[in-house]
Design a protein around this nucleic acid. Structure first.
Lengths: 307, 307
DNA sequence: CGATTTTCGAAAGAAATATTTCAGACCTGT
DNA sequence: ACAGGTCTGAAATATTTCTTTCGAAAATCG
């Protein structure tokens, strides 16, 4: 019995854009989001009820209730799992330091991230970014703008006309006037969603720009206007959410782009590297110890946390 | 929020014989048997639909759908369990797209990170940062400066006098003149190490500042001058390294700091929050759907310029 | 043993959910 | 620019699911 997740990820089915939105929501927190009503799911995905039903049929079910029945049996199977039984008893993993258990949580969240986004989403974004004829701008909230900055750093190696907007201020909105169909805006907006970012992205979309959104499973309001939405779970047992999975996602996007570079672009990257080398911006520490990845720089002072 | 199981076991409610049959079925394989339709449950218990509804009301719900919603959220909570996530991960190892396998690699790297740093290191850094009498500055390289920025964002919630240096330029070096024993410099330097960052950190150390270094396992030259060095493995099968573990580390540090806040600082954080709330910087999307964590923004290609 | 109360299911009615239809929007290739 | 195609949401329809009503059976009590 194939599980519904596999069906959703099956490339052969060639889901339509609306259908993919549904798939995305479904995968983002699988499978609970499919356990409510069809309309509810439709609303979450921002599509009509009809489309949800059509997807169910396309996947080979008799209708939505049929799909749901399958989902339910999957849930049941998982709840029956011996692992869970074990865990119910043994309350929590051994009491470690705060930092350590935090890192464990992050690792789990990243695992969740993997299954939360269909494979071809990255590909789609990669294409949008690399094929954009106009400008590619990046914007983010109080913390996420740093992620925007990182991605901007990578992207500007691959193409010209990349613009990191940085902190949004009143004058930032002026640049909206130049936005048009050929431009792309990559927005980062994780809860709690920031009014200025939402407003900015909305208006960019209004002017015809293609909006790519990175957000969490609760979906920033920007999702309404986004061409592609990349969802990232980032909840951890801490007052603040973790952005590490989001970083991993943009890096995955970069890996995706790298794998499909054409020759022109590849030359661009090489040129950049050589320019940097010529200006001695970086320094390599020579690896004295043959195969082992551990060099031996002298440690003069202080502590070195080591593997 | 009491769980449904507890309600069913509650003696005070004095269930009638038919109601108890339902309760029994429900508890027998909790909670999946309650996730279908009311009639289905009734049939399994050998009672009428009406009785099922009556039970739901008796338990204090508005009706069967209401009870079901609660059941659903309980399921969701259990499915979030770490161990189950691990299981999912294992079943997913099959060959995937570039982005996906990249994420897997990152996940592994983070696991490595956990064991790469002794537990008390975070604690030590937390103390250095929070007890510093002077200024806490942050500096980083071409990519890592974004991580510095993130950490600066967090830290400035906890103490005054946090300074994110941002991109290093010639004038940046001027501020070195003010560095002294009471100051702390947090430097991020992952390979390939940047000359300017190394120079800056070295001179800060020379002037007596306490240097905390985040670097990779090959150790930035700054390590020689650092009071504490936090090492992060960040190699993945890609031309670029991953910074996700580094982000996880600074967040772990924040978690550590949070756990040991004194009252003064805690009040500072609360004040910041309320100031932000009063100025309506962020927007919460209300959760329309009880059990499920998804909001339901109505999607319309029209624009809702906000705030 | 009968009167009264409680419990319960069948069936009707109400509400919700799912499905189909249809027309317009949006591509795509000529 | 235009024809042919696909995709999609609104609304109408069909279906299922839930709730209420009501009378009969069972239990309880005097």
């Amino acid at each position: 019995m194939t599980d519904v997740r596999a069906l959703l990820l099956d490339q052969k089915l060639a889901l339509t854009p609306s259908e993919e939105r549904i798939a995305q929501i479904l995968l983002a927190d699988y499978p609970t989001s499919g356990l409510g009503t069809a309309s509810n799911l439709a609303k979450k995905a921002g599509v009509s009820d009809a489309t949800v039903v059509r997807l169910a049929v396309k996947l080979g079910f008799d209708g939505f209730p049929d799909l749901q029945k399958r989902l339910l049996s999957e849930v049941e199977a998982r709840l029956q799992s011996p692992l869970l039984m074990m865990e119910t008893k043994r309350s929590n993993v051994a009491a470690q330091g705060i930092a350590e258990s935090y890192l464990h949580a992050v690792s789990e969240t990243i695992d969740k991230t993997i299954s939360a986004t269909p494979a071809n989403t990255y590909d789609k974004v990669a294409r949008i970014v690399m094929e954009a004829k106009g400008r590619v701008s990046l914007v983010g909230g109080r913390f996420s703008r740093h992620i925007a900055g990182m991605l901007a750093g990578y992207l500007s190696q691959f193409r010209a006309n990349v613009h990191d907007i940085g902190t949004l201020a009143a004058p930032s909105f002026d640049i909206l006037v130049d936005y048009g169909k050929r431009d792309v805006l990559i927005a980062f907006d994780y809860r709690r969603y920031q009014n200025d970012v939402v407003a900015f992205a909305s208006q960019a979309a209004e002017r015809g720009a293609t909006v790519v959104l990175f957000t969490d499973q609760w979906l920033s309001p920007i999702a309404e206007h986004a061409e592609v939405t990349i969802i990232c779970p980032l909840e951890v047992p801490s007052p603040y959410d973790t952005l590490a999975p989001a970083v991993a996602q943009i890096e995955a996007l970069v890996a995706q782009i790298l794998s499909s570079l054409d020759d022109t672009t590849r030359r661009r990257v090489e040129n950049l590297e050589s320019i940097r080398a010529r200006n001695a911006v970086t320094v390599d520490v020579e690896d004295s110890s043959g195969s082992s990845p551990q060099p031996g720089p002298k440690r003069k002072k202080g502590i070195t946390a080591d593997a």
